[in-house]
Amino acid sequence: MIEVQQVTKRYGKFTALDDISFSIGKGEIVAFLGPNGAGKTTTMRIITGFMPPTAGTARIAGYDCLESPMEVKRHIGYLPETPPLYLELTVEEYLTFVGRIKGLHPEPLTSRMKTIMEQTGLSEVQGRVIGHLSRGYRQRVGLAQALLHNPPVLILDEPTTGLDPNQIIEIRDLIKSLAGSHTIILSTHLLAEATAICQRVIIIHKGKIVAVDTPEHLSARLQQSETLSLTIKRSYAGLAEELGRLPGVLTVTTGPSHNTYILETKMGVDIRDEVTKFIVSREVGLLEIKAQPLTLEDAFKVLTKETSLNPAESHPLQEK
């Protein structure tokens, strides 16, 4: 459904995208994962035909984004990073306008608007002026706009930013429910979001594709070790070395404050119990012990530098 071949995009001397290629099948949900400035938005803008690539080709449903932009535009629904809203119009007026420029006829448009407003939870605010709506509602209007003409391909640039946790779950469920009938690309900088909704994750970093995999494989690849964070009350000389000698501990580093220790442990071995017993036996006052979730930053470190996972190359802290 979506084919991107050797696409490069340069802004002057800056290379935003460097020779990226991927393809997405019909009905798939794929996440673009990457930090800000990785090239997610640029890639999406090229796929939508909003901007042409410097080199390479992008195709949607067999139509080239440069050669047949009109066909491409008919096949996509696009939610940009900033939802494109006319703040002076009401939700209803806005969606009517969008439906018309997307080429919907009046009768199907009315029924389609009703369905979409129900799906996105906008029915109760349909008569209100968009400028008076909260951020969460505006995001929903943006999403409704992308879904309105029932396009086979949906391109959603960070669809859940600015929403509260309940809304995030609602929108994620909505996106999941569209899978199968729609091909969806969404971008996010949350690893958890990508794993929660998508069948495949494309990780981009500095304009290059770092990894393409299923969320399961990716997690397995990333989580070859687990991290424990430990905070004690009284400092204790040599605690780091002693912790390092515990079975299952790979490395020990001091955390953000002096009395915080970060322990990297072997995958699948839960040693919280042993560590707790050890700390209690030293009577330094255990304040907190918790398993740290894998953050996107860690993921990038891992994926851009796989070797750092090798315990032989990491450097255990030498506390005085």
Partner: peptide
């Protein structure tokens, strides 16, 4: 909103 206009048919 230009992004909307320019990505519409």
């Amino acid at each position: 909103t230009f992004e909307l206009l320019l990505t519409s048919p």
